[in-house]
């Protein structure tokens, strides 16, 4: 019963897209971090968000799985509205995967245990089943041989690929990336981006905060430029890079593309 009603709500909002933000505001005390954010992300769409530091881009995607709380407006993820209802938050978190700048693998668990923890404890899968899925995703991010090592024994690029695999093990509909390559050495950035490109090609809905403009060009359906808590510009990549409309966007692009 609950399932059918949930599917109905999903269908009702489903047409509108996987993520809907309307009129979202957020303050840190006096500081207005998000100002009137309106954004609809369709199922399977890839969005890249860029902007100077402190522009609110990380805060925006952290609001989508409620790591941050918004104070005004509406956020609907996959047909469920984010309110303070704990059940809704749990449901959304189990369906939305997140990858962090600093990987945040659990250092006291092996790679395999990192991947199996949430499927076993949250989704109540059997350990054998969880391990099978985990090994499948490790294969997909091309490090199956590291399964029994600990995070501290892996390179940054390998750790970030494990973090992506860990999020994928929950079988999410949406993946959020918060500057996934910013903490990596240049030669490791590519191995992580390759995994993300492959993931994008598989049809996953993705929101990605990144300054990798080559990645934005090749993968994104839309690129968003944020500054001072606002969405300043939103356009398909060809248009975004060829003729940005706002001066702030032009200034930002000239700074990150010409160095």
């Amino acid at each position: 019963m609950a399932d059918t009603s949930r599917q109905q709500t999903r269908r009702a909002h489903g047409a509108a897209g996987a993520i809907v933000l309307s009129g979202v505001h957020k303050w840190y005390g006096e500081f207005h971090v998000l100002r009137d954010i309106n954004l609809t992300v369709k199922d399977g769409e890839k969005i890249v968000i860029c902007g100077p530091s402190g522009s609110g881009k990380s805060t925006l995607i952290r609001c989508i799985n409620r790591l941050e709380e918004h104070q005004q407006g509406q956020i609907i993820v996959d047909g469920t509205e984010l309110t303070s209802d704990l059940r809704n938050i749990d449901r959304i978190r189990a369906e939305v995967g997140m990858v962090f700048q600093s990987f945040n693998l659990f250092p006291h668990l092996t790679i395999l245990d990192n991947l199996c923890l949430a499927p076993v404890w949250v989704k109540k899968r059997s350990r054998a089943e969880a391990e099978k899925t985990a090994r499948m995703y490790l294969e997909r991010v091309k490090i199956p041989e590291q399964a029994l090592k600990y995070p501290g024994q892996l390179s940054g690029g390998q750790q970030q690929r494990v973090a992506i695999a860990r999020a994928l093990c929950m079988n999410p509909n949406i993946m959020l990336f918060d500057e996934p390559t910013s903490a990596l050495d240049p030669e490791m950035i590519k191995e992580v981006l390759d995994v993300m490109i492959e993931l994008a090609n598989s049809g996953m809905t993705m929101m990605c905060v990144t300054h990798e403009m080559a990645f934005a060009r090749s993968v994104a359906d839309r690129v968003i430029f944020m500054d001072r808590g606002e969405i300043v510009e939103m356009a398909p990549p060809e248009e975004f890079f060829a003729n940005p409309k706002s001066d702030r966007t032009k200034h930002f692009l000239s700074q990150i593309l010409n160095h």
Partner: peptide, 10 residues
């Protein structure tokens, strides 16, 4: 660590 665990739905 807490954020990563929360993001996984724990």
């Amino acid at each position: 660590q807490r954020e990563a665990a929360n993001a996984l739905g724990l």
